[in-house]
Amino acid sequence: MTAATPVAASSAADPLPETGTGPNRRKALAALAIRLGALLTFAFIMLYFALTARGFLSAYNAFNVVEQSAILGVLAFGTAVVIVGGGAEVQTGGIDLSIAANAGLCAAVFATLSTAGFNPTVVLLATLGTGLAVGALNAFAVVGLGILPLLATLAVMNVAAGLELTLTENTVVSAASPVLAFLQTGRFLGVSTLAWTLILFSALMILVVHHTAVGPRLYAVGGHPEAARAAGLDVGAYVAGTYLFSGFCAAFASVLLVSRLSASTPGTGELLLSVLAAALLGTVFSRRFVPTMGGTLLSTLFIGFLANGFQLLGVSSYWVAGVQGALILLVVAVTSFARPQEH
């Protein structure tokens, strides 16, 4: 019962139909309800923590959360860009499951080379190179070989995790470097370097993705590759670029990670759940149900405050993982319900 049957009728002077026909309007209202609902839930949870968790509202705690969220935020931006460029369909769209494992590998490279006494510039370049190489592998698997991102990056995730274990033999590799010292103790206007990193990185992402031509093109590539191609865009290059960017984010986050712990530690890959939760949760803040940079920042902070609130309330951190998993399910279910069926 899809297509238009009609011989259709009426006077030729009629203008074309206006927007906002019945089902569309209902759909738009549902979408609005979901967005408002998400914001209200966010506010409600914050309010709950503010009333019950001692010290939750203090400036110290707030900055602490922002600092803690820096690593998560950088990784979530990487993932969000991949989802934008690959399309927000959960099963077939863009996703980078390897980003956390990649960050772990990069952290291991950074810590190992620093300990071995290499020049900080060399160490940074090697770390960056590692992240980009893993990103390039993803890009090759997805764009070159045409493997579904979900599977391709799952495989690459294991490659990266395996390499990290080979490098560190599953131990903590402590590291010291002038870069780390700057990140650990640097402050400007009373705000720590880590917090500044998140603020500036977010501002840069919002500027580039939402205020330059890169943004609409990237959304077009993810939203309807054929249309993007017809508009003269090199779809493959854009998609490959998103995986390279997420590789860059992994490398960047790994430096922040090592600075926070003064070491590379096993288990970085476990960040994946939080990263996915932050990137996917970000989609509910957009009327198109695609990730936006502002939405990603908001949901990153939300995830950060959630973990922090549970901690202050003395709830076991194991619960946080469960809550994040449930959030992912909820967001995916709600947004795929609200997203109109295309094609």
Partner: peptide
Amino acid sequence: IHQERLLVPTATVAEAVFLNHEIRFGPFL
């Protein structure tokens, strides 16, 4: 004008009209 509707469903009308030929102010949209 292709037979298939080659438009990005999540784009706005303005974005669809100007995709890949955006009006810019310096580097910004």
